[in-house]
Simulated scan of single mutants.
Amino acid sequence: MNVVKVGIADLNVVDTPDVIRTTGLGSCVGVVLYDPTCKMAGMAHVMLPESPSTENNVNRGKYANTAVPYLVEWMEKRGARKRNMWAKLAGGAQMFTFAGQSDLMRIGPRNVEAVKMALSRLGIPVMGEDTGGNYGRTIEFSTVDGILTVRTARRGIISV
């Protein structure tokens, strides 16, 4: 078993029995797609809700509207089927609040909304999530059992 790390604004795909992990989820959202039939998982560490451009030079892992479709495409090229996929999410915290804060500053909640919208457009259900709050997270997904482990300083370790 290998542990594959996903960086900020990054994505990757693994097969069983490998584990996929990302750290430093504050307002960012960790999106895991899983095809339980072939036990393949993909993870994106989404930083922002929407890409200003959909041209080829855009970092696809950085934005919800590009990361989710790209991850599906990548997994399908490796043998997964979109019709079998489901998702788990974590992150999307509101790390800082200020008086008179505009909607643009609600990055975490906007990231969660954008990821869910992208998943909905593709017909991929969300099977579990640990989103919101005002604390950071580290997540790890097991391709063997489909469990997303979420580690936080405030709430300890939970399974989603």
Rank of each mutant, 00 (worst) to 15 (best):
M1D: 09
K5V: 11
V6C: 03
A9D: 09
A9K: 13
A9N: 14
D10A: 05
V13C: 08
V13M: 09
P17D: 06
P17M: 08
D18K: 06
V19D: 03
I20Q: 05
T22M: 10
G26T: 05
G26M: 04
C28G: 01
C28K: 05
V31F: 10
Y34L: 01
P36R: 10
T37W: 09
T37D: 05
T37H: 13
G42C: 05
M43S: 02
M43Q: 04
M43N: 04
A44S: 06
A44N: 00
V46W: 06
P49M: 11
S51G: 01
P52V: 08
P52M: 08
S53H: 13
T54P: 04
T54M: 15
G61N: 01
Y63D: 00
N65F: 09
A67P: 00
V72Q: 10
V72E: 05
E73N: 14
W74R: 12
E76N: 09
E76D: 06
K77M: 08
W86F: 14
L89R: 02
G91S: 06
M95K: 05
F96H: 13
T97Q: 13
F98D: 02
G100W: 06
Q101E: 13
S102L: 14
D103M: 14
L104M: 11
G108F: 08
P109Y: 07
N111E: 12
V112E: 01
E113K: 02
V115C: 00
K116R: 15
S120R: 15
L122T: 04
I124L: 07
I124P: 00
E129K: 08
T131S: 03
T131G: 05
G132P: 01
R137G: 01
R137V: 00
T138C: 14
T143V: 02
V144I: 09
T149V: 14
V150Q: 04
T152D: 08
R154L: 11
R154E: 13
R155P: 04
I157Q: 10
I158D: 07
I158L: 13
S159M: 11
